[in-house]
Design a protein around this nucleic acid. Sequence first.
DNA 1: TACCAGAGGAG
DNA 2: AAATCCTCTGGTA
Length: 809
Amino acid sequence: MKPGSRTGFVHEVDYISEDGNPVIRVFGRTEDDNSFVSLCTEFKPYFYCLPGPGYSSKQLLKRILSPEVSMPAHVIEASLEKKMRLGDEITLVRVTLDSPREVRSSRSLLRQIPAVEEIFEKDILFKRRFIIDTGINPLGAVVLGNKTVTNRWPVDIVYENGVPECREEYLHASDLRVLALDIEVACRAGLPNPQLDPIIMIGLADSKGTRILSYGRSGGDIEICESEGDMIRRFSTIVREGDYDLLLGYNSDSFDLPYLRTRARKNGLRLCLGRDLSELTYQPGSVMGRSIIRGRINIDLYPPVRRMLNLPTYKLSEVYSHLSGREKEELEVGEIRDLWSSGREEDAVSIARYCASDVEATMYIAMEVLPTLIELSKHTKQLLADVARMGQSQMVEWLLIREAHGRGELVPNKPTRTELSRRRRETYEGGYVLEPRKGLQENIVALDFRSLYPTIIVTHNVDISTLDCDCCPEDNVSPTGHHFCRRQEGFIPSILGRLVDRRKEIKVELAEVDPGSPELTRLNAMQSALKILSNSFYGYSGYPQARWYSKESAESVAAWGREYIKMAIAEAEAEGFQVIYSDTDSVFMTIQGAVGTELVVRAMEFLRRINSSLPGDIELEYQGFSPRGFFVSKKRYALISEDGRITTKGLEVVRRDWSRIAKETQRSVLRSILEDGDPSRAAEEVRQAIRRVSERSVPVEDLVISTRMTKTLQSYDADAPHVALAKRLKESGEEIRKGSNIEYVVRKGSGRVGDRAQSVSEARKKDYDIDYYIENQILPPSMRILSSFGYREEDLRYYKTKQSTLDGF
DNA sequence: TACCAGAGGAG
DNA sequence: AAATCCTCTGGTA
C-alpha cells in the first residue's frame, strides 16, 4: 500500500454526468470510520459487435471507424477483442462510447450496418459494468489513494483517484451504521393518501436505541417537533448527521420513503437523504418501484422476506412473530386516527409505543435476513441493495456474467421477443412422483438424494457448451438422448461445482462450532446463501428469459433425476424394502416385520451399497425415521417422529385457503391417528367439531377463508368466490389489486358460494352457513383420512346414529 | 357429469 | 423476472 493511502469498504456505486461525461462514484466507509466517495472519470461504457457471415472482424472494424458510417459522434474507440463463445474463440469489435446515455442510440445506428450480425453486452447497466470490469467487490475492500478534495459533499473524504485498487477482504456487518425507519400516518379512511393525510410520527432505530419524532403532542419519550415539516427536517438531519450507511424499512420502497418525500414537498421541503445531498427519487418499476437514496444502501425488507420465508401473510407483525416467537404491539388503522385526534397525552404515547414496536421489529427482521443477503452479495458480486431486490434467476445470472467476464466468455444476449415466445412454448418433463401406498403405514425410513439437481449438473457436466460435442459422443448420454462432453469442463458445472464444494466445507465447519456462537450465525448465513444459489441453477437453465437458457440441459437434468430415483426405488425393492412413496429425490420405505433400530440399520446398509455404485457427487442420504405415517395421495401425507412431532405435507392443514376450523379438525384427526394408530379418537374429534359448528359456538375468525388475488380483477375469466366478493368490494370503494388477500365467511342461503361470501367485518355468528362448513370444510379434509378406516360421512355427523359396526375398529 | 380456471402446495 | 408435477374447489354447460 502506498504511504498515505488507506482501505475503505464499498457500500454503493452509481454514476453522474458532468459536462456529458460519466463520473463513477464509489461510496463507502474507510477502516478508520470516515465515509468516503471515490470518483472515477476514466471508465467508459462499451459493447461488442459480432461480424455477420461474409465479413471479417477487421472489415467490420474498418467500417465502424470509417467516417461515412457517420459513426456516431459518441464512439470514442473501436478495437478488436477475442472472446470465447460456446467453446469457440471468436473475434468481435469492441465499441467504446463517451457516455452511458448514448448506448441506446449508437446501438441502433450500428445495428443498421449490414456487416453487424449482433450486438452483445449492451444492456449491462453502467455501474454494474464498472463493478465487473474493475473487480470491485461490493462490501469488499478498496485501496484508496491520497488525492483528496474536501468540502464538496457531506461525506468525510472525497477521493479523485480513478479506478480503485481492490482487495479480497470484506467489511464486518457490525461495522455498518444501520438505521431502521417507520412512519405513522393519520389516515381518514381507506388507504393513506399522501396528498391529504399527514405523517404524525417517525420511528427510528439504530444500534443505540429507538427514537420517536412527533409534533403537537407530548408524552413519554416522544421528541417533539414544531410541525410535520419540522419533523421531516429533523429526520433528514438525523440521517445526515448520523451518516448512516444502511437505511432499512418494511415496505419502505413503495410506502414510507415516497410518502415522506411527498409530505416534505407539501411542506415546501425537499427530502435530501443522499450522501451527495441529493433528493430522494422514486423510480417506478413494472412490478414494484424503488426509492433511490444516493450513496447509502437502501433496503426494503419486504421483497427479500417474501422470497426467503414461506408464510401465510407477510404483514410486519406476522413476520416478526414468526422469526422471534414474540408478539408485537398492534393498532388498527382507525385506532391510530382516533388516538391522534383525541389529542390526549396517553393516546399519543400509545401510538408512539406502536411506532417503536414497528421500527424495532423491522430492525429485528433485518438482523435475521441481512447475514444471508450479505453472503449473496459477496457471491454474486452485486451491490447489497440490488441483491435485496433480485429474484433467484437474476442472482444466478449476475454470478455468471461476472464469471464470464473473468474467463473471457462472451455474455449471451437476452432472448428477443420471438425467441422468448418460442421458448415459452417449449415444455419438458420434470421430476418423477410415485403414487403412494395409501393409508396408515408404520416404521418408515426416509432417504433422499443430497442436492440432486446440482450434483447431476456437476457430475454429468451439463452445460450449453458441452452439449453434443464431437469429441466423445458415446459416453455421458442423458436419458433424453443428449450427450455432454467429458473432456472440457462446462462453464456452469465448474462454477456450480465450486459452490457445492464450498458448502460442503462450511457444513463441516458448522459441525465443529459451539451452538450460540456468532461464528455459527455467520457460517449458517454462508451455507444458506450457497444453498439458495446452487438450487437456482437448474430452474435458471429452464427459465425462458435466461441468457444461458438451455432446454436440453434442464430436460437432461430432470431426466437423470428420474433415472436415479427410479433406480433407488428398484434397488430398494430388490433388497426387500417396500417403497411407500417417492417424489423427485426422496424415497419413503419400510420392511415388513422390521422395526426401529433394525430397520434403520438395514437402510444404512442399503445406502452404503447403493452409494458405491452412484457416480460422482451423487449420493443418497439417510433422512429420518417415522414410527407412523399416513399417505393420502401424491404430495399429500403426514409423518410422526419418535419424539411425537408431526410434519404434514400438502394437506389442508398446511394450506392458506382453508378455514381454521377445517384445518384444526384435520390436524387433530392426524394427531390421533398417528399417535394411537387407530381412528376412534379421531372420529370423535370430528363429531365434536361438527357439533360446535351446528350449535354456532364457533367464533367467526375460525370460519374465515382467505384467498389471494393472483392477477388483476379484470383479467379473471371465472367467477370464483373470492373474485365475486372482490368485485362487490370494489363496487363499494375498496382498493382491490393483484396480491390482495380476500377474506370471507360463507353466509347461509342458497345459490353460489360466491354470492354468499361476506367480508369478515360484516360476518355474524348467527348468519354463517352451518351446512357449508360441515359438508365443504370439515368433512372433506377429515374424510380423506378417516375413509381409509372404513368411516363414512354419516358416521361423523354427530346427530346421526353412530354405526355400531365401526365401534370394533 | 365433464370440463375448466384458479389456488396453492411439494420437491 | 427459476423449473414441473399434483390435488382439489367452485362454477358452468
